[in-house]
Every structure is written in C-alpha cells, then in structure tokens.
C-alpha cells in the first residue's frame, strides 16, 4: 500500500528560507534510508506559495476565480511530500516517525495519508487466508477429519 507523507508549510518555508545544512543532511540521509529499504517511490519539495496560483469555483457551475499567491495560513499549505510503498499502515507510521523534524522551531508537521489503490491491490492477507481456507475445505476429502 502507498502512503503520502505530507510536510506542512511553515513561516520559513513560505518565506523561501532554505533549511539549515544540518536538516538538509538529515533529510538526505533519511531519503537514502527509504531508498535502501526499497520503499521510496517519490519525494518532492514545493516552491513557496508566493509563486502559486489558486483556482476556485465560488459559484457552482460558474466561472473559476484565479488568485495569485502568496496564501496565508501556512499550516494549511504544504511544502513537500514523500510517497512510500509499504506493507502495512504501521510500517508507514514507523517510517513517518523517523522523518527528521522538517523545520524545527516547533512548527514541523508531517501528515500521513493513504493513497487509493485498485481493489485488487488492496487484497489483504486476511482475504487471501480465507481463500486458502476455502481451497483447503474444498480439497479435503470427506470422512478424513
């Protein structure tokens, strides 16, 4: 299953302040660890919202309104994301817990969201176990239990 670790924006990231060398190194190490564990799918950082545009639909069925950044409320914005492919929700949580505090200064926030997948891909071990049970009961010969 795939999870997105979303790093929330902070005043610094919105102001375009680059992270310290220390944080930069820690993030690089972390990404390397993800890659070496075979779970890293993608990792991207985003420009501050000052260069963003927002398209909204204030009137249902009406014309879109286009608004230029920057946008306020840093906590509602995102600064980057990392996509990982893991076996379980718990594994995803463990990886997210290991991500370095993205900004320090008490503002760091990471949100973990599961990505939708085709139903076939979410076929979980429990469902498979049931399938095996079913098979076993079909192949079992009567009178031998």
């Amino acid at each position: 299953m795939r999870f997105m670790m979303i790093v929330k924006a902070t005043q610094d990231s919105e102001a375009g302040v680059m992270p310290s060398q220390e944080l930069f190194d820690a993030m690089a190490r972390y990404n390397e660890e993800l890659a070496r564990a075979g779970v890293l799918v993608a990792a991207e950082g985003l420009h501050p919202s000052s260069s963003a545009i927002r398209i909204s639909y204030p009137e249902p069925g009406g014309k879109p309104a286009v608004l230029d950044g920057p946008f306020t409320e840093a906590k509602e914005l995102i600064a980057g994301f990392t996509l990982i492919e893991v076996k379980s929700r718990e594994e995803a949580i463990q990886w997210a817990m290991r991500m370095p505090d993205p900004h320090g200064l008490g503002e760091g926030e990471i949100e973990l969201r599961q990505v939708f997948e085709a139903p076939e891909l979410t076929q979980d071990p429990e469902a498979l176990a049931k399938e095996i049970e079913m098979r076993a009961s079909v192949t079992r010969k009567p009178g031998r239990e």
């Binding site: 492919e85 076939e120 076929q123 071990p125």
Partner: peptide, 24 residues
C-alpha cells in the same frame, strides 16, 4: 493458478527487493 489474476503482495515484495538491490 486460481481465480485471481494478480497477487499483489508478491509483486510488491519483488519490487521492493529489486529496488533494494538496485541501491546496494
């Protein structure tokens, strides 16, 4: 064999191992 076309867990494991191997 069996009624299912894709057994996703095995594909996921294989891909993960391959990605690890590509790193090491």
């Amino acid at each position: 064999s069996g009624g299912s076309w894709i057994r996703p867990m095995l594909c996921g494991e294989a891909l993960r191992l391959g990605r690890i191997l590509a790193e090491i």
